[in-house]
Amino acid sequence: MFDRILPYLLAGISVGGQYALIAVGYTMVYGILRLINFAHGDIFTAAGFFMVYFAAAMPLYVAAPLVVVATVLLGFVVERVAYKPLRSAPRMSIMISAIGVSYLLQNLMWYVTGGLAKQYPVLPWISEQITIGPASTKMATVVTPVITVLLVVALVMLIKHTKIGMAMRAVSRDFETAQLMGIKINSVISMTFVIGSFLAAIGSMLYFSNYTTVTPTIGAMPGLKAFVAAVFGGIGSIPGAVIGAMLIGICENVIKAVGYTTFSDAFTFALLIVVLVFKPTGLFGEKTSEKV
């Protein structure tokens, strides 16, 4: 039994780690702007395409850092162009703008690639096959949880112990007061998007090393799932997002192992509805009260 489950468990932890890297981006943006950044999944996909095109043009050790830079830049530009002008608009408008950006990015990627699935380059070491007990898998599977934990710990340190981290916490607690205290909220918000995109870029390298093809809409589903993970863990909480993502990744793959592949996506959303109805603040979320 264990032998049969093990590959799925491994895949679950690995996918969970990749979702976690995306989920952190969602949860940070939501914590500060109260915005579901629908375009985040597409930024993740864009990172995949950046790698496809950069790796074809230059050696990998140049391409990989460039991918990260390009993704971060994309996240930054999206925020400046599509969200910043709407800062004082109702929340619904910003969310619609996010949906619009997602639509635009998907169409743009479709245009650039001609709608064809692209083969993701083989990354040295990460893409190697290894065997753990009875299961054969890729290095990425094993590396992902480690990288995820390392990055998240680094991020938590950043938020707890640096000046920009303190500013982030202040802005997420109270937007206007933070502004009055002299915090440059625009740069704090940009920083949030930069960190989120950075993690998405790393996540995309790990994710696509496992799944090997990139299509313009491939990021939509992991994006939504990562959002569910962020909600599950308690939106705004970074450790919560990671634990939520791990749980979702594992559950999804166990469901596949049991033979209900059709329902592996549906499960995530069912979980979301259950969590939202019974514990809207998620596992680690802060309780907020409605103000008049």
Binding site: R34, L35, I36, R91, M92, M95, L224, F227, V228, V231, T262, F263, D265, A266, T268, F269, A270, L272, I273, L276, V277, P280
Partner: peptide
């Protein structure tokens, strides 16, 4: 269950529901 949720949570829950229907 879903309509007890507020703005963006409602959006995500209904989106999720549509995905569930599609799978089922």
């Amino acid at each position: 269950p879903v309509l007890r949720l507020k703005s963006d949570y409602l959006a995500i829950a209904t989106l999720g529901f549509a995905e569930i229907i599609r799978a089922v």
